[in-house]
Design a protein around this nucleic acid. Sequence first.
RNA 1: GGCGCUUUCGUCUAGCGGCUAGGACACAUGCCUCUCACGCAUGGAACACGGGUUCGAUUCCCGUAGGCGCUACCA
Length: 551
Amino acid sequence: MFNIQCSIYFVLLHGKHVLNFEFINFESRNMNSELKKVRVRFAPSPTGPLHIGGVRTALYNYLFARQHGGDLIFRIEDTDSGRFVPGAEEYIIESFKWLGIQFDEGVSFGGNHGPYRQSERRDIYKKYVQQLLEGGKAYIAFDTPEELDAKRAEIENFQYDASTRMQMRNSLTLSKEEVDALIAEGKQYVVRFLIEPGRDVIVDDIIRGEVRINSSILDDKVLYKSADQLPTYHLANIVDDHLMEVTHVIRGEEWLPSAPLHVLLYEAFGWADTMPRFAHLPLLLKPVGNGKLSKRDGDKLGFPVFPLEWHDPKSGEVSSGYREKGYLPEAVVNFLALLGWNPGNDQEVMSLDEMVRLFDLSKCSKNGAKFDYIKAAWFNHQYLLKLPDEAWVPSFDKVLREQGITSTPEKEAEVVRMMKLKVIEYTDGQGQKHKRNISFVSDLWPLTRFFFVAPTGFDTEDKFVRKNWKEGTADEMKQLADVLATVEDFSVEGMKPAVDAWSERTGIKPWNAWRICLVGEGQGPDMYELAAFLGKDETLRRMASAIEKLG
RNA sequence: GGCGCUUUCGUCUAGCGGCUAGGACACAUGCCUCUCACGCAUGGAACACGGGUUCGAUUCCCGUAGGCGCUACCA
């Protein structure tokens, strides 16, 4: 037995970062383990769409795997046949594809540790259940759900454990003949883990340090159900992680309470010296109020909790997705990564590759993070601005089409160029009005309508109109129209000298009124740019219409 | 109820015994300006509470309170 404290310091020559990969404490493990290739897994249950919290867990696994040159495994934990939802598995795969999180092996990715779907590993689990049974580490229990309910009603805080198991119908209280007979006559049973009470179990967590609990508070967990010939999560998880040579288990905090059970299982199998290291991530909490983030919160406040839109096959209900809402995958990943981790400096906007370089499990925060969808939108804004204007076009064109407008990619890119730095007003879940940057391509529509549709009426009550359209304004606009009519080259460069000269000569500052003519209100881009975009005919037509209507 | 995790601006967080407690989002103000903005600048805003340990605690320990999770033949 060796006690080795192993810290490896990598100095990256092409960067000023000194990374301290502490991996840590190979206490009571053999020498080989420190040379083992890092292997992590993301193992969702196909019971519905992938929750955004799950995305973050997968992301952290991905970052950790990449950083250590390890493998990321995609395993499907479908041991609860009753909760299987068709399409969920495909949805999850599609989600990661969109997000740019790549797996090295697993369902749909290949690999030589398969099969990676737990429902296809029945025979494997049976063998290990048998091993536990033969070693006296587990036992067979025949108690029906009804009997258990009765017991719970009878005994306050009933728990199936050392204090009660001898009152139950199981292979510890029944003779071997009785047990065999019950099985022979087809009685359903479960296999329970026999927990020895009174032992301190230590879970060594990378994020939380040593977590110590006493085995007496653990119950004899069901490991296997004869009804569907499948193990429960706990057994399947340990067997698979062992067989798939998983080195680090990075998962949500909701698993922390059962981690001691898992440690005990590794011991029972005799795998303690190759047991993976654990890291339990803090949970994602709802933005307002208490509790963890749920689908309901998203619906209420208007942000998605799923990466992709999800059509529930049973209820027909549709849940919104980040992709369909107009989020860029890079923005989602960046935002999510920073919910519970940060590189320790002030850097916030970073690529997946940068995150791989900087990621550090031990720097993850321990407490739950409220989901701040306002900041998620800000991240999208950042990534949207990095995109060339042409890259906005496909989405923008789609938005325009929905409004019944057809245009050309060139024109659309031009509008994007002029308008992408504007802000938009929006109403939050509480009915409060706010302004924010253009965060989604679809934000452009309310700000760009006038590029494609002439103002139909004018709101004379509007502050901007009242202030900028006075007695002589119509006449001034007529003069401006006359000037513009003489301009041959109707580009910014072509018209600006003529207009400026006229303005200089007459002392008239025409821009705000001109804006009313072309836009109808006090917003929009530079007037020369707008006029150039609309062209001479449309510009003059709109001016004439405004002069007529506003007088 | 039991067990575990957790607690720095409204939110995400930096801090790892001595700091005017830093940054980002959001908010407010100013500058810029033909509008709305962008940008830039500035500002308000936090160590849950009570005990220890220490020359000195945001930082270490113990309580209390709050938050979160688990407590299934679900994961």
